[in-house]
C-alpha cells in the first residue's frame, strides 16, 4: 500500500512536471515570436483554463485553442469568423474629401516605402492620392518619396529640407482641397519616442491637420518593423499618448520575424493592426487579416 501511494505520486509528479514543461515550451514558442512574457502568459492562462474546463488533453486541440485565443485578441474579443469580427472596419476614410492619413514611427521601420505602397493601394481602388513629404529632416527623404510619386504619377507637396513639417502638411491639404483629392498621405520623419521635442512636433502636425479639416486625421498609423522586439510596445504607448494612434502597419513581414509584438500591442494597448507589408515591391501591401497572420505565427 505504501508502495502504491509512492508510485502514484511519482507518476503524478512526473505527469505534473511534464505538463509544466509542456506549457513552458509553448510559452517559449510564443516568446520566440516576440509576443512578450505578459501576453504569452495571458494567452496560456486562457488556454489552460479552457483545457481544464473541457478536459482537453490533445496537442492538436490545444494548438487550435491557442489560435482561437490569439484571434480573439486580434479581433477585439470577437470569435473568429463571427459576424462581429467581420464587421470590424479595415480602415477609416472620411465622407468629405480629402481623407487625411498620417504615418508615424521610429527611424528605419519603412514609413516612406509604406506611404508609397498605400498610395498605390488606393490608386488601384480608383482614388486620387496626394503625398505630403513631411519628413523634412532626413537627407534625401523627399527624393525617396518623390521617386515613388513619379513612378505612380502622383502629386507631391514638399518644402526645403529642414523646414517646418507643419507647413508642408498645411500646403498639402490646401492643394488637396483645390484639386479635389480623395486621400492625403503624410510621411513624417522617423523619430525616437524618447525624443521629447520631436514628439511635440508630431502633436503640432496633428493640430495643423485638425485646424485645416475640422477634425483629427482619419487615420494616424504607427509603422512597426516586424523585426522589433518588446520595445515596440513602448513605442506604441508613447506615440499613442502623444497623438492617439488609430492603428498599426506591420512592415518587413517577408523576413524571418513574424511580428508577434503586434499581439502584445493589441492586447495591452488595444491598438489594432490595419495593414501588413511584405516585400520591396510597391504592391507588397495588404489589409491585415487576423486569421492569415495567426496561421503564419504557427507555420
Amino acid at each position: 500500500m505504501q508502495r502504491l501511494i509512492k508510485n502514484i505520486s511519482l507518476i503524478w509528479n512526473r505527469f505534473k512536471k511534464s505538463n509544466e514543461d509542456f506549457w513552458l515550451e509553448i510559452e517559449e514558442q510564443l516568446i520566440l515570436n516576440d509576443i512578450g512574457v505578459k501576453t504569452a502568459a495571458f494567452i496560456i492562462e486562457e488556454v489552460k483554463n479552457h483545457c481544464r474546463k473541457e478536459n482537453i488533453n490533445d496537442l492538436e486541440q490545444i494548438k487550435l485553442l491557442l489560435k482561437k485565443y490569439i484571434l480573439e485578441i486580434l479581433n477585439d474579443g470577437a470569435a473568429a469568423g463571427s459576424a462581429k469580427a467581420s464587421a470590424l472596419p479595415d480602415y477609416n476614410l472620411s465622407n468629405s474629401i480629402p481623407s487625411v492619413w498620417m504615418l508615424v514611427g521610429v527611424n528605419g521601420v519603412g514609413k516612406t516605402s509604406t506611404v508609397a505602397k498605400l498610395a498605390s493601394f488606393f490608386q488601384n481602388a480608383g482614388k486620387n492620392v496626394l503625398l505630403a513629404a513631411a519628413d523634412t529632416f532626413r537627407a534625401a527623404a523627399y527624393e525617396q518619396l518623390d521617386h515613388f510619386a513619379e513612378q505612380l504619377d502622383l502629386p507631391i507637396v514638399h518644402h526645403q529640407r529642414g523646414s517646418d513639417p507643419g507647413a508642408v502638411v498645411y500646403d498639402s491639404i490646401e492643394k488637396a482641397v483645390a484639386r479635389k483629392i480623395d486621400i492625403v498621405l503624410i510621411d513624417t520623419a522617423g523619430r525616437m519616442h524618447t525624443a521629447y521635442n520631436l514628439m511635440e512636433e508630431l502633436k503640432k502636425i496633428k493640430k495643423v491637420i485638425n485646424k485645416k479639416i475640422g477634425r483629427d486625421p482619419d487615420e494616424i498609423l504607427m509603422v512597426i518593423d516586424a523585426t522589433t522586439g518588446q520595445n515596440a510596445k513602448h513605442q506604441a504607448a508613447i506615440f499613442n499618448e502623444a497623438v492617439g494612434l488609430s492603428g498599426i502597419i506591420l512592415t518587413k513581414t517577408d523576413g524571418t520575424s513574424k511580428g508577434g509584438i503586434v499581439l502584445t500591442v493589441k492586447n495591452e494597448l488595444k491598438i489594432p493592426v490595419k495593414f501588413l507589408t511584405f516585400g520591396e515591391k510597391i504592391e507588397n501591401l495588404e489589409v491585415f487579416n487576423a486569421e492569415k497572420f495567426t496561421d503564419l505565427l504557427f507555420s
Partner: peptide, 30 residues
C-alpha cells in the same frame, strides 16, 4: 530594438560574410 530573431539574423549574416564586428544602432531609444 531587434527582437528574438536577432540571433538568427546575426548567425546567418555571419555564415555568409564572416563579419568582424557589430555596430549597434538606435541605442538612443529606451
Amino acid at each position: 530594438m531587434t527582437g528574438q530573431e536577432a540571433v538568427n539574423i546575426a548567425q546567418q549574416f555571419n555564415e555568409s560574410l564572416a563579419f568582424d564586428g557589430i555596430i549597434m544602432t538606435k541605442l538612443d531609444s529606451d
